[in-house]
Design a protein around this nucleic acid. Structure first.
Length: 462
DNA sequence: TAACAGGAGATGG
DNA sequence: CCATCTCCTGTTA
């Protein structure tokens, strides 16, 4: 993911930065929660005069390999006031007793660490509270652990006045406390960007993945980029090229040959390429296998129109994967989009004479027969979820990252779907029947704990 | 009562 | 042909 940053060019970098900024704000909020927990931890420790240095700390190494850092000693003093969750473990842990340990977890890439007191056993560890008493996670059990002084934190002072109950520790999932590192935030930002891109593609009625574009899609897309940036449509000047060819062009080519709009096209294209490289788990049958070596051979042997030929790049290394298109799980080839090469064109001559095999590799449906494109229900639902218009009253994300959403107003969603499809008799019963058809197709599923009106997009359709 | 699950035939692009 | 649409029966919360 980190390499994506360098690939996202001007001018969309600004949009990207805004998204990252938003994410950072969210992260800041979660940091506040963490700080409060830490302050509560300090308050508790100070209140009981517990010297962290004497605590039987179990240090998790940076990779959380507990076994590498076994428990070394136990405290002599256990105060009566010490709540159960802070009491140390006997050397032999009784199976019925809850066990607690303190682990240090590095915050981001800094040397400072955060201490998590966790409950062990059962299905896993539950974070009970946290504090930042430890200063070095890499050292062994004789680390110096300095409890913070009373006045070193505003959080502490604020909390001192507010907190009455020593047991007012908010149980928290350890995951929630993990500091989101940069790559995670970037991944999230790219995910957001991907949503925007997918929505644009859905509106344009073209596949998400530029590699699946046919020349008509490319033209449509370039026209759209020009309209979006309020400049003259340059697509009419371009020789018809398909998505794979477009993707294999040197990004510099666009600015060199088309000036400012070239930079914009390049930016948008790089984003589309980047956004489509980050599907974590491709659904079965959703990816096409593209033989890039053969593609490159074909490119090398192809003479494109003057407008595009000078910048044909030999570096197609960035084309390392392919992604599902928006229409169906096997709808990934541009041949299915009614694309029939013009027999008189150089492009199609090369395609048909020079590399039928490559064409076949690209196209799961070599006949080239296609459907008229209509929006699919899952796309429509995603569109509502991602829409800037306010549809949150009828459908909203419960967990954007996991693709879990809830239909809040089934009647309204059905009405919207019926309107879009020109089916006045549409209702939720019918809509949900269609959604259920997605179960076996692996597009939408019910969540693990099935809840009413809650569904989840499967991996690859997020 | 609404939502859910899934079979089965019809429909339209 | 395929993605629904429609209607249906039965189940669950």
């Amino acid at each position: 993911m980190s390499t994506l940053v360098g690939n996202i060019p001007f001018p969309l970098i600004e949009q990207y930065r805004t998204m990252v900024k938003d994410l950072e704000l969210e992260e800041e909020e979660s940091k506040c929660v963490t700080r409060q927990l830490q302050a509560k931890g300090r308050y508790f420790m100070d209140y009981h005069g517990i010297d962290i240095k004497e605590e039987p700390l179990v240090y998790a190494s940076q990779d959380n390999n507990m076994a590498a850092n076994p428990i070394s000693s136990y405290p002599d003093v256990v105060t009566d006031e010490m709540p159960n969750f802070l009491r140390p473990l006997p050397r032999t842990v009784p199976s019925q007793a809850p066990a607690y340990q303190v682990a240090s977890v590095p915050i981001s890439n800094q040397t400072k660490t955060s201490t998590y007191i966790t409950e062990l056993g059962g299905s896993g560890c539950t974070l009970v509270t946290s504090g930042d008493f430890l200063t070095d996670s890499s050292s062994s059990s004789n680390s110096s652990c300095t409890p913070p002084s009373v006045d070193d934190s505003l959080d502490y002072l604020d909390l001192d006045q507010q907190t009455l109950s020593l047991y007012d520790f908010e149980p928290m999932d350890a995951k929630q406390c993990e500091s989101a590192d940069t790559s995670e935030r970037l991944e999230e930002a790219v995910m957001l960007m991907r949503d925007v891109i997918h929505k644009d593609c859905a509106e344009l009625d073209i596949p998400y993945d530029p590699l699946a574009w046919n020349p008509e899609h490319v033209r449509k897309w370039i026209t759209w980029v020009c309209q979006k940036n309020k400049v003259h449509d340059v697509s009419v000047n371009l020789y018809p090229i398909d998505g794979p060819t477009l993707c294999s062009l040197d990004p510099n080519y666009f600015s060199q040959n088309l000036g400012e709009i070239g930079r914009m096209i390049s930016s948008e294209l790089e984003l589309s390429k980047a956004a489509n490289r980050c599907f974590p788990n491709p659904p079965k049958g959703a990816y096409i296998t593209v033989d890039y070596e053969r593609h490159q051979q074909w490119l090398d042997s192809t003479t494109l129109a003057p407008c595009l030929s000078p910048a044909l790049s030999t570096s197609s290394s960035s084309l390392d994967s392919s992604t599902p298109g928006p229409h169906s799980e096997d709808d990934t080839s541009y041949s299915k989009y009614n694309y029939r090469p013009d027999k008189n064109s150089q492009f199609s001559t090369k395609m048909s004479n020079n590399d039928e095999n490559f064409n076949r590799i690209l196209a799961k449906h070599p006949t080239g027969r296609g459907h008229k494109q209509t929006i699919h229900l899952w796309q429509f639902l995603k569109e509502l979820l991602l829409s800037k218009e306010n549809h949150h009253d009828c459908i909203r994300w419960l967990d954007r990252k996991a693709g879990i959403f809830k239909i809040e107003d089934s009647k309204k969603v059905a009405l919207l779907w019926g309107t879009r499809k020109n089916r006045p008799a549409m209702n939720y019963d019918k809509l949900s029947r269609s959604v259920r058809q997605y179960y076996k197709k692996g597009i939408i599923k019910k969540t693990e704990q099935s809840k009413r009106l809650v569904y989840q997009f499967c991996a690859g359709y997020l």
